[in-house]
Structure formats: structure tokens, C-alpha cells
Write a protein that binds this DNA or RNA. Sequence first.
DNA 1: TTTTATTGTTAGATTTGTCTAACTTTGAAT
DNA 2: ATTCAAAGTTAGACAAATCTAACAATAAAA
Lengths: 140, 140
Amino acid sequence: MDHTKLSQSLEDYLEMVHMLRLANGIARVKDIAAALTVKMPSVAKAMIELKKLGLVTQEPYSGIELTEEGQRVAAMILNRHILLKGFLIKLGVSEAIADKDACCMEHILSAETLGKIEDFMKPAEAVPSPKKAKSVKNKK
Amino acid sequence: MDHTKLSQSLEDYLEMVHMLRLANGIARVKDIAAALTVKMPSVAKAMIELKKLGLVTQEPYSGIELTEEGQRVAAMILNRHILLKGFLIKLGVSEAIADKDACCMEHILSAETLGKIEDFMKPAEAVPSPKKAKSVKNKK
DNA sequence: TTTTATTGTTAGATTTGTCTAACTTTGAAT
DNA sequence: ATTCAAAGTTAGACAAATCTAACAATAAAA
């Protein structure tokens, strides 16, 4: 709703909280720090910001939780990441580099460019009749 | 030679010096500021850094010049910009957005990804025989 | 249960990049 | 030649994001 534009850094932290929760069920400060190769106090400060923005919650000395809004924003960022990584791989980039570069691109590309990349990625189906081509197909 | 990795910000300033010199023959502080939508003191500070790095020179109160190294680095950045903008346009992105997104991407993409994008952009020629695909003009 | 190692937090320093305000230089118009 | 507006510079404030060092809480071992 509020759409407070996050810095690249905060987007990375939020996304990592989401990924660790998907992978481990819990997002701990130590693991966030390791995954982003920063020190724990950097994570702590970032979490304070994300809490202020209403995107995460945390019981002191425990794992980080996502609010509903945080969940929504994190999922959006992660989807961009997945899209971009797949796109780069399709161009022939190696998995590791695709992951790394997607991680940078996900914070900066305009909606228009992301849309065109989506189009590029799904020409498999959705071409039978070029009319009201609104083949929604329900993603996910 | 030294390969001091420039920040995104300094890359932007250096590239803009180059572009203004190509367009106007001279890169003035005021024009750099206008083009990057920052204030003149920000340009002044950036120029101090670029001078320290041996990439630009300047007579006090005059236009900015590029050193040989600065010229080389700036040209490399501009080439990336041109490549990426063309790539996005090929994907169907509008010119204005392509320019803006290329401007972000040019600072972050790995050499591998840039190479694959180059490959993607030039399948016009260089496809006759898929062998030592190093079709570097070789007359004969 | 007490001790100890691990994890998390707080405080404060540092770097980078921006800004505003004030000052200086330059060059064009009077 | 003098004045004055435009362009450039300097000084200093501020915000974001990182770090190290020191401290606090938790959990694991003894």
C-alpha cells in the first residue's frame, strides 16, 4: 500500500529474510549476515529500519518474521530475481554468475524492462491466435 | 593498468565527461551537474576524486579533460552503455527507458553476462560455420 | 546449577555521496 | 574600466551503510 521505496540494501536484506525462511523455516541474524557477507551489526541496523517500515517483526534475540506487507514485497523481489536469473541463463550465462547479476539487476530495472523480459521468457505458448493476446495463464 | 575499481557514481561522472566532450567539445561542471541532476558541488567533489585517480585533469575554473587512462575507461563504460541500450531496445523497451536502465546496468553486470549479451546482439553475420567462431574480419 | 560458547545488540567510528550556504573567479555589458 | 551575473569552489552538515569493539542474552556443556 504505502510503497516506501526501499534502498537496494534493504531490498537485499528483506529478500534474504524471505529466502532463509523458505529454506530453513527461520531467518537468523547470523545466517543473514553470512549470506550477504556482512557483519551481524549491519544486519541488526537493517532490521531496525525494516521494522520501522513495518516489513518485519522480531522478538528480541530471536529470528526475523515478515509482516504481511513484508511478505508481499519480499515475494515480489524474489520473483524478479527468479525471472532475471532464468533470463540470463537463457542467454547462456553460467548459473553462479546469473545468480549474482540477477541479484544486482533486481533492484534497478524499470517495470517496462521487466515486462519485456517476461515476454521474452514465455513465447513457448500464448501464440496460437494474435488477437486479444491476454493469455494470463496464472503464473506460479 | 591500475584498475582501481570505480564506484557507480564515479563511473557515471566519468562517462558524462566523455559524453559531453563528444557532444560539445567541452565538459563543464554546470553541464555535468545538469545531466546527472546533481548540484555543482557534487560534481566538484567527484572531479577531485577522479583527479586523484589520474582519470581527469582540469585547469581551475575551466572544463574537465580526460587523461589517456580516463579516455580508455570512459570509452569502455560508454560502450557498455551503448551495447545495453541496444539490447533493451531489441527486447522491445522504449528508447527513454532503455537509456535509463542501461545506465544502471552498465555499472553492475559481470564480464560474462556482457559477453553473452554481445553474442545475442550480433548473430546477423558470423554464423556461416560454427567452428572457431572468432570471426574477426580476417580478409582472404 | 554454574560455566562457557554462541548469538544478538549497542555504541561509536568511517566512508561515500549528497546537499546548502558562502565565497571566488571569470567574462560580458554597461 | 567597472560592475555584475554566471560559473566554479570551498566548507561543513547530513544520511546511508558499513565496520570494530564492547556488552548482554541465550543455549549448551559440564
